[in-house]
């Protein structure tokens, strides 16, 4: 009997917490498809707000995807070989490098954005292009890619596999292509999902780095929250959810799979 009560109490509490997280999302979704949120759902269901958002903000949404995939490309090309180098080389220097590239996880995005602005703000062409935002996103997401790949390296004993391939005559570059990358694939995929998700949702850095011509999806969101009616802001949030939730689900599935192994 007492166990039952404890169970019911804990379940009730957990449901309450879940409601705190889920109810606002449901409110936002319903507001985004309601004709008039103030009058409630009986005023009718509509996609006009979604269409309006698409019309107003498709540039921002497009740019966000461009930046997200460009960030992914840079973190893959730079991060995957570096993860291999750091893992195989080991030693103090590697630890120092790893520590430094991980710092952007601890330092608030605002500080990094200020630092970039104060250093490169004077380079007009660069400052005004989307590449400036790309740089910020790269600095911020790089540690996720590098660490995700390094975690896999540590679990499959990549160093011995590398030596095995070398003993069979493969040159460093051949080994990297035939053995290192294929065996790092789970980490590369997990890191890629993470990079895309973080880049699409990044606001702290981006708000400081953007210009009127280089607005991203979250910058547009903040814009709409400040200046648009609630239904439009909600419809925009709804679009963001539709984009980000599949990525989150994929990431969660990955984590579960990794745990089972």
């Amino acid at each position: 009997m007492r166990d039952r009560l404890i169970f019911a109490g804990q379940l009730g509490f957990t449901l309450l917490v879940a409601a705190f997280l889920v109810v606002p999302v449901l409110l936002s979704i319903s507001a985004g498809i309601t004709v008039n949120y103030f009058r409630g759902i009986q005023s009718g269901v509509t996609l006009q707000w979604v269409a309006q958002v698409w019309g107003l903000y498709k540039g921002e949404i497009g740019l966000s995807f461009l930046i997200a995939f460009a960030t992914l490309a840079v973190t893959l090309v730079v991060g995957v070989p570096a993860a291999y180098g750091l893992h195989v080389r080991g030693g103090r220097l590697s630890r120092v490098i790893e520590e430094i590239i991980t710092l952007p996880l601890a330092i608030p995005g605002l500080a990094i954005a200020l630092a970039l602005l104060l250093t490169y703000g004077g380079f007009g062409g660069f400052r005004q292009s989307w590449l400036f935002i790309l740089v910020g996103h790269t600095v911020f997401t790089m540690p996720f890619m590098v660490r995700s790949v390094m975690a896999v390296f540590a679990s499959v004993d990549i160093k011995t596999l590398d030596e095995g391939a070398a003993s069979l005559g493969a040159s460093p570059w051949t080994r990297f292509c035939n053995v290192i990358v294929p065996n790092a694939l789970p980490g590369i995929l997990a890191g890629s999902l993470m990079v895309i998700t973080l880049s699409l949702g990044e606001f702290n850095l981006t708000w400081m780095l953007h210009t009127p011509l280089t607005k991203t999806l979250p910058v547009g969101l903040a814009d709409s929250y400040a200046s648009m009616r609630l239904e439009v802001a909600s419809a925009y949030t709804l679009i963001f959810f539709i984009m980000i939730v599949p990525l989150l689900v994929a990431m969660q599935m990955f984590a579960d799979k990794g745990e089972k192994q």
């Binding site: 499959v156 004993d157 011995t160 596999l161 030596e163 095995g164 391939a165 035939n178 053995v179 294929p182 065996n183 694939l185």
Partner: peptide, 8 residues
């Protein structure tokens, strides 16, 4: 010792 067979 660990064989170092390529899992891929």
């Amino acid at each position: 010792q660990s064989y170092a067979l390529f899992p891929n």
